[in-house]
Computed example of a mutant assay.
Amino acid sequence: MREILREIGMIARALDSISNVEFKEIDLTKGQYLYLVRIRENPGIIQEKLAEMIKVDRTTAARAIQKLEAQGFIEKKDDETNKKIKKLFTTEKGDHAYSFLKREADHSDKVALAGFTQEETEALLRYLQRVRQNVEVDWEFVKKGNKREY
């Protein structure tokens, strides 16, 4: 089992490294693209839900959101019924960056899945979703201050 998680980790780190290099040309730094993509695909999402979606703590999400807002990629808007709630939206600059990010993601998918049949690709997605769901149980448990027993 360890080899599977190591492989997943290596794939994730390699793609993240590529992204961090290539996204410098659109002024996105270390991991900001994750937030921008999720905000663009979920207009009006709130910070807490975004942090949960990306699997980071709220402080990390707050820092990234603050930077994206300062750079003009996203904006916060008050909720119409509850002014304490700030909804996140991409700006025109964010939308432009998203189109670049989408092209990169499509290319990375094509490269990563080269040689796979449609059935293999669909099976891989199902398997990885199951792995993520299993890990999410522990993530939620630890996030609440608990310690796993090994």
Rank of each mutant, 00 (worst) to 15 (best):
Y127T: 13
E149S: 12
A64N: 15
Y98D: 03
K83M: 04
Q32V: 04
E75Y: 07
E22S: 10
E52W: 06
T60V: 12
L124R: 08
S108C: 03
A64Q: 15
L88E: 08
E122A: 10
V135M: 08
I85D: 02
D95M: 10
I8Q: 13
Q133T: 14
D138K: 00
E7T: 09
T60P: 14
K24E: 15
A105G: 03
R103C: 01
E80S: 15
R126S: 15
G94C: 05
A70F: 02
Q118C: 01
K30D: 08
A112E: 09
S99R: 15
I45Q: 00
L88A: 09
N20Y: 10
T90E: 12
K102N: 11
L5V: 06
I54K: 00
K76Y: 08
K76D: 04
K83V: 04
R38G: 00
Q118I: 14
G115K: 01
F116V: 12
G31R: 01
V21R: 12
D109V: 15
R2S: 09
V131Q: 01
W139M: 01
A123R: 13
G72M: 02
A70Y: 05
R103P: 01
L68N: 05
V142H: 02
G31W: 01
V111S: 03
T121K: 08
K86E: 12
G44E: 09
R6D: 11
G44V: 11
K24D: 15
T91E: 01
F141S: 07
L34N: 05
A105V: 02
L128G: 05
R148F: 08
V37T: 15
V111Q: 07
E104Y: 11
K87W: 05
V142C: 03
I46N: 11
E122L: 10
L101V: 09
A51R: 03
Q118E: 15
L15K: 12
I85N: 05
E149C: 07
H96D: 07
F141K: 13
N82K: 13
R63Q: 02
I74E: 01
Y150K: 14
Q118V: 13
M1I: 11
L113R: 08
A105D: 04
A51K: 08
M53G: 04
I39S: 11
E104K: 09
T60E: 15
V142Q: 05
L113Q: 06
F23C: 05
